[in-house]
């Protein structure tokens, strides 16, 4: 029996990052859910709603990828950002253009910050793509549920990812 977890056996890993208890911060997990429900996903693709636990998983992938052949070819991070507009616009962010200020693995309780994503790409040979949605301000108290604009963005982001890989939609 294989001793590698599923996320290390897949060719492409898609991680939905965010906390669905905090409004539009649930964008990433909702995209993963939407892809799973509405598209035929090939077996070599691994989708995971990682909530706020992305760093824990990425640490394992980074160390693993730098030492053993158990590495995905590509990791797609689907995440919410607050870049000032809050308009639900979905866009890809090249890892190179992420801010460089974050460089310390201070705690697990952080996002897959830019240093980790750079390490994955530059040191481990894993292609990293960030699919982000500008969600604006996230509530400070628990308030689950997406706003209408971000719920719409979930559909757009799912289609964008599915089209890129050529995944057919499931029957309506």
């Amino acid at each position: 029996m294989d001793t590698l977890p599923a996320f290390c056996r897949a060719r492409v890993v898609i991680l939905g990052v965010g906390n669905m208890l905090f409004g539009d911060d649930g964008f990433g997990p909702e995209v993963v859910d939407s892809l799973t429900r509405h598209y035929h996903i090939p077996d070599d693709i691994y989708l995971m709603d990682v909530g706020t636990g992305a760093r824990k998983l990425l640490f394992t992938i980074i160390v693993g990828a730098s030492l053993v052949p158990a590495r995905p070819e590509e990791i797609i991070i689907v995440d919410a950002v607050d870049w000032g507009q809050g308009n639900g616009k979905v866009f890809e962010i090249p890892v190179e253009s992420l801010p460089v200020t974050k460089v310390d693995d201070f705690s697990l309780h952080q996002v897959p910050t830019s240093n980790m994503l750079r390490e994955l790409q530059d040191e481990c040979g894993v292609t990293v793509t960030v699919v982000a949605c500008d969600v604006g301000v996230i509530p400070q108290e628990i308030a689950p549920g997406l706003s209408p604009a971000i719920a719409h963005a979930v559909i757009a982001a799912s289609k964008q990812i599915a089209d890129r890989f050529g995944w057919p939609p499931t029957a309506p």
């Binding site: 906390n19 905090f22 706020t52 919410a80 950002v81 801010p99 460089v103 705690s107």
Partner: peptide
């Protein structure tokens, strides 16, 4: 000083998160 904090392995936040990576230590 960070080492003193790290010894406790604290949970700095269990709430939301940011991708942009601003504000390091």
């Amino acid at each position: 000083v960070e080492m003193a904090i790290r010894a406790y392995d604290p949970c700095l936040s269990c709430a939301t998160h940011r991708l942009d990576g601003t504000l390091p230590v």
